[in-house]
Computed example of a mutant assay.
Amino acid sequence: MGEMAVQRGEAGAEVVSPTAMIDGSVRAVRTALDGGGLRDVGVNPNQRSTRRCTGPSRL
């Protein structure tokens, strides 16, 4: 996961968003980016939530 984040950062990504729900995944990505000299690339922990809509949606 860290290697892929570094590849994305080197390709020009400003932010990477790991979606794997593995303990320590954000830390691993941040460590890999820092180790690759990509301190300006942000990490956004993408937390997915699903919601079942059975009627009108109220926000």
Rank of each mutant, 00 (worst) to 15 (best):
R8G: 07
V26S: 09
N46G: 15
D34F: 00
R48K: 12
A13G: 05
D40V: 05
R48A: 13
R58G: 01
T54S: 11
A11P: 12
Q47H: 11
D34Y: 00
V16R: 01
G42R: 15
D40W: 00
R39M: 01
S25L: 13
Q7F: 10
D40F: 01
R8M: 13
V16I: 11
V15F: 10
T54N: 11
S25H: 07
T19Y: 04
S25D: 14
A20H: 09
V29E: 04
R48I: 13
V6D: 02
L33Y: 00
N46A: 15
A5Q: 02
G2K: 02
N46Y: 08
G37D: 05
T19R: 05
A5I: 05
T54W: 13
L59M: 10
S57N: 06
G42A: 12
R27M: 08
S57A: 08
E14I: 01
N44A: 15
I22T: 14
V41M: 02
G12I: 07
M21R: 09
L33N: 01
E10L: 15
A20Y: 09
T50R: 11
S49F: 15
S17Y: 10
S17K: 11
V15L: 07
M4F: 08
Q47G: 13
R51F: 12
R30Q: 11
A5V: 03
R27H: 06
L59Q: 05
V6H: 03
V15A: 04
V41E: 03
R39C: 02
E3G: 13
G9N: 02
G24H: 09
G35R: 14
E14C: 04
E10Y: 10
D40E: 14
R8P: 03
A11G: 12
L38Y: 03
P56C: 06
L38V: 01
D34K: 04
M1L: 13
V15M: 09
R52V: 15
L59N: 03
P56Y: 06
